[in-house]
Computed example of a mutant assay.
Amino acid sequence: MKIIISPAKKMKTDDVLPWRDLPAFLEKTDRLLAALRAMPAARLKSLWKCSDTIAGENLRRLERMDLRRGLTPAILSYEGIQYRYMAPDVFTDAQFDYLQEHLRILSGFYGLLRPFDGVTPYRLEMQAKLSVDGAKDLYAFWGADLASALAQDAGWVLDLASKEYSDAVAKHLPPSVRLVRCVFGEEQEGRVVEKGTLCKMARGEMVRYMAEMDAERPEDLLAFDRLGHRFSPEHSSENALVFLRNG
């Protein structure tokens, strides 16, 4: 079993725990870095869709970026809502071992990351219109590589990623690998409505819940009850587990 999650735009460096390995697709990351460094500042700002201040910070990052030294474990590097609710800073050693085996972070820059792969702060979303090596965008650049890596030792994959990132692997997974999506929402006028911030919070809580429960099967997730959510069998299907929250 593998769990896939999205990265976060905001990143930090952290030396509390050492990184263990370099990312599996680092040679492809090298090519992305070279392409970014070859672009003019105005084009990069447009690619990043950010303010002048954030663009300046990331231009300085590109200038000094070292992909092999001074790295931070990926699980500690991202600072988004999902990661705050996952709270990796207080995982036990056994829970970190669980995550290292099962959790994978999807990334437009690094491809697929294990929790203790060493990374450096970057800015590159999966949906960025970046053409590299003849590929029209990052989805084409990564192709089936990420799904193939996931499928090597996974009977099923739990999708806790945003659509932007899950789209990078979903259409490439072989039929033998079951993809199960978690939906966290509220019922409104007969429809299940997902709200962005609450979804991110719940995805982080689900990762923590699975590590605490040592979950291995979809059935192990059904008792999840955090942030007011409850499993709804009538809204769920074989490949979609729906958890509803009282509004």
Rank of each mutant, 00 (worst) to 15 (best):
L113G: 13
N58P: 10
R64F: 02
K45T: 10
Q95F: 05
F91A: 02
R104E: 11
M126A: 04
A94V: 01
Y98T: 03
A55V: 09
E101S: 10
R69E: 15
D89K: 11
W48P: 13
D52G: 01
F91N: 05
I75F: 07
Y122N: 07
D97S: 14
M86F: 05
F116S: 08
V90W: 04
W48L: 12
E63P: 08
L124D: 07
M65L: 15
E125R: 10
K49R: 15
E57M: 14
A87R: 14
L106G: 10
L59G: 08
Y98H: 01
L99M: 13
Q82Y: 00
A94D: 08
A87P: 04
I54Y: 03
A42T: 01
E79A: 14
F96Y: 10
F109L: 05
D89P: 00
G70D: 04
L124S: 09
W48A: 12
L67N: 05
D117Q: 13
Y98L: 02
L47P: 04
G118F: 12
Q82G: 02
R84W: 05
A128W: 12
L99G: 06
R114G: 14
L47T: 04
P88M: 09
I105L: 10
G70K: 04
P73Y: 01
Y98A: 00
T53D: 05
M65P: 00
Y83R: 07
L62G: 11
R60Q: 15
H102W: 06
L59Y: 09
K45R: 15
Q95Y: 02
N58K: 11
K45H: 10
I54N: 00
R69W: 03
Q82K: 02
R64K: 15
N58D: 14
Y78K: 01
G108A: 03
R61A: 06
E101F: 02
H102G: 13
N58G: 12
L106T: 13
E57W: 08
G108M: 10
M126D: 04
A87Y: 03
A94T: 00
E57K: 13
S51R: 10
K45F: 01
L47Q: 06
L76K: 03
S46N: 13
N58F: 03
R60P: 06
Q127N: 15
S77N: 06
G118A: 03
A128M: 09
Y110Q: 08
A94L: 04
L67I: 12
Q95C: 04
S46G: 13
L71K: 06
Q100T: 10
R68L: 07
L113M: 13
